[in-house]
Each structure stands twice: as C-alpha cells, then as structure tokens.
C-alpha cells in the first residue's frame, strides 16, 4: 500500500435514512415479542411452568407460549431427543416461519447428557439443526432459562441471531447428519432448497452429496384422498 489510492474505501450506502430507524424498530419488536413453541421431550419441561407462571413470569419480557409451529418464533427443546423424536423436531422446525430460533435446554441437547451411551438418542442437537442458544444444566433452574432467553433477546436486538440462515446455507451438512440417522430415504414435506433460493441464501454448502441423494429418493408429495369415516377400507390380510 504505497499510494493512497490503494487503500480500500468502503462507500457509505445511500439509502432512505428512515430505513435504519425502521430496521431498528423491527429488531426491537422482534426481541420484545417472542412466541415459544416448547417441544417437551424430557425432564427439562418441568422447569418451564414455574418460568411461565407467577413465580418468574416470562410474560414480563414479552415471551408467551404458542401452540402451533406456524405461529412460533422459538423452538424450545427441553431434554434428550431420541431418533424417533428428532424426526418430529425437524418437521416442526422446518414448518416454522423465519426468523426462527432454536434453544436447547438441559445437557442432553448439548452432548447427550446421561444418555450419551444410548443407541437411540441423538447426542448433539446442533448437528441436525442450527441452535441459537444452549442452556446447560441437569436441569437448568427457571432463572437460568430466563437468563438464557434474555441473552437471546439481546442478540436478536443486536441483529446477531441469524442462525436460521445457517440451515439454508449449510443444508447439505445438516441433511447428511439426518440421513446418517434416518437412512437414505429420509425426506421432509418442506422443500428447503427452494426456500433457500427464495431467501437468496443459496450458497456453497446448500447443495452437495447429500442433497443429490435426497433427489434420487425423493417422492413427490400427494394430497391425501378425502374420505369419510365409514368408507375407510379394512386392511386386507
């Protein structure tokens, strides 16, 4: 860098000055209004009712439980995920609307916890989907859960909680780990690659060996036939 011309200059983006204010408002509102979908698989679920009810009251922070994945922002996984459960967790995760956040509660989601020797348990949750935050402990107290959620709120406000983009950017990695557990025939109803294109997040890690394997085995989704209860055929032996 001998001359001054070689020094890279980042030009300030010209844009609507109100856009920044609006972005700030959106980030603030996102951080202050979080709808949780709690997927209670293990013993950690018992720490959530005190966190929500009168003792610790999560609604103070704008956090409230919701019942369907479409409405929720946070997927809260409390406890160990067995291989059978993990399928449901992934289906749920893919149905949620972005920006979405995953929180793993208890040490079982971190490294398998006391089930680390089990053949039927998925040890690390973040091999199968991007996890924003772990709250370790066996089990974490409600204070720890709320402290973790506050940390998530801070990072959403700072615009750093973008791990949902990671699922689209590195879909091949996550799909590979899923196929290792569930077999080559594994497919979900959600077309993740098309979604990645839609969000403009298609990158090097999106497509790869595993997505090609998915394409080989993928069967097109068909709507279920509409039937009334009486017309159901008995299975013939």
């Amino acid at each position: 860098m001998s001359s001054i011309n070689q020094i890279p200059v980042i030009e300030a983006k010209k844009g609507n000055p109100l856009a920044r204010v609006f972005d700030e408002l959106v980030r603030f509102c996102r951080s202050r209004s979080l709808f949780i979908l709690h997927y209670c698989t293990g013993c950690g679920a018992i720490e959530l009712p005190p966190a929500m009810t009168s003792r610790f009251d999560m609604e103070r922070l704008g956090i409230q439980p919701m019942v369907s994945p479409r409405q929720a922002d946070i997927l809260l996984i409390t406890g160990y995920v067995s291989i059978k459960t993990l399928k449901r967790v992934i289906l749920t995760y893919e149905q949620m609307g972005s920006p979405k956040y995953v929180i793993g509660i208890c040490s079982c989601t971190v490294n398998g916890g006391m089930y680390w020797q089990s053949y039927a348990t998925a040890k690390k949750l973040d091999e199968y989907m991007p996890v924003d935050l772990y709250i370790a402990g066996c089990m974490p107290r409600p204070e720890a859960v709320i402290a973790g959620l506050q940390q998530l709120m801070d990072s959403i406000h700072a615009g750093k909680a973008n791990s949902w983009e990671d699922y689209y950017r590195n879909y091949d990695y996550y799909l590979g780990n899923q196929q290792k557990l569930f077999g080559d025939n594994w497919q979900t109803p959600t077309d993740v690659i098309a979604e990645a294109k839609h969000y403009n997040l298609l990158s090097k890690g999106t497509l790869g060996v595993h997505t090609r394997l998915l394409e080989q085995h993928q069967q097109p989704l068909e709507a279920l036939e509409m039937r009334l209860g009486h017309n159901l055929k008995e299975p013939t032996e």
Partner: peptide, 12 residues
Amino acid sequence: LYDIVKLHSKQT
C-alpha cells in the same frame, strides 16, 4: 404493539 409489528415483519 410489539406483537403486531413483529408478526408483520416476519420473513416467512
């Protein structure tokens, strides 16, 4: 207000 703004600003 937070809830309404957040829901309208969801990316999906």
